[in-house]
Write a protein that binds this DNA or RNA. Structure first.
Lengths: 189, 189
DNA sequence: TATCTAATTTGACAATCCTCTAATCACAAT
DNA sequence: ATTGTGATTAGAGGATTGTCAAATTAGATA
């Protein structure tokens, strides 16, 4: 079954389950197979309406139909219902990336605070400060030891207020210091 | 948790899951908690739209929120997602009876073929014939043995064509015969 | 306090969905 | 072939939903 592979198919499955009348139909079919006229009588619905609902259930792969004498008999296809909600919600990472871009927020923040490579201002908000500081910290080579003078020089490329930047980098644990020697922190990941 | 107990609440849960954007949100929250602005950026949606979707997810009990600095941070409430689709679809018998009437079809058939206790005609269709024959068979006392003469007399109350009725009852295994002695079949259930 | 920021609400519009009636279709029975 | 039966389609009305822009609210910052 390669139905339910992508996002929209899964949403469609849930949508098919998202109506009381259809849930009742599935319950009735759980007991035994049923034909349209029967369901219509039980649910006090117009046969056309039942047809409509049954079409949705069949499209979603939840029921199947076969002919018997005068009737079109519908049966529950129970296999899919054995999976957990989580398995059905959970999409592989890569398909999340195709449908959305998880770094969009980060990108947006970086774009709005950096102009031509320079930091226009230091954001007051933690989450945004974190993002721009991480971006700046990436300029330091891991493992290498820096004199304070070198650090200042490097930071000046981003903003004239190099002292604040240096302080924040320390505060956010992106840069470490011992005496006048600085080095970049290990990446958390 | 007595949420998800009744039909409409369950339909509401599925409806909440029945939209691609909301499935993506849940996936993003699976990795870590997120705030609205972030989700909006990632999904390329208006913050108001994200708010709208988040409200549906919270109403359905799928996410919870807490404040952090400037932000309202939303987290996935995963417990519910561990249940299988079937458990969520499956309603106890009694609540099916309150929301629908499983015997409505049978009732309808009986009403339309019996007028003032008499069978107006013998239906040609199997399913309906079955229903009216079961109803007639119920007039015979279980265990008791009937002479053919008694059977005919009893059936005449329903329809003048007692011979056809008798034949059908045998054919549908509702009545058994040995020689000229008849008796009612055991109930299948 | 005044100001800033994210979240929510409001209102509008389009799209989708649910329900029914009426018409049509497919097919079994005669 | 004609009739009868259930299923489906077409279309329409009303309700709900998804989306965004604009206004408002709640709460943190300074």
């Amino acid at each position: 079954m390669d139905l339910y592979k992508n996002l929209d198919q899964r949403a469609a499955l849930f949508k098919a389950l998202g109506h009381p009348a259809r849930l009742l139909m599935l319950n009735l079919m759980r007991e035994k197979s049923r034909h349209g006229e029967e369901l219509a009588a039980i649910l006090h619905l117009n046969p056309a309406t039942v047809s409509h609902h049954l079409a949705k259930l069949t499209d979603a792969g939840l029921v199947s139909a076969h002919k018997d004498q005068y009737y079109q008999v519908f049966s529950l296809r129970g296999e899919i219902l054995k999976t957990t909600l989580m398995e059905m919600v959970e999409m592989p990472q890569e398909s999340i990336h195709t449908d959305a871009s998880p770094d969009a927020f980060r990108d947006k923040v970086l774009r709005s605070f950096f102009k031509r490579g320079r930091l226009t201002q230091i954001p007051a908000q933690q989450k945004k400060k974190q993002i721009i500081l991480e971006h700046i910290a990436a300029e330091f080579e891991p493992g290498r030891r820096y004199e304070e003078r070198e650090v200042n020089h490097l930071l000046l490329d981003f903003n004239e207020d190099y002292a604040s930047l240096r302080r924040f980098l320390i505060e956010f644990n992106l840069l470490h210091r011992e005496g006048s020697i600085y080095w970049r922190a290990e990446k958390p990941e």
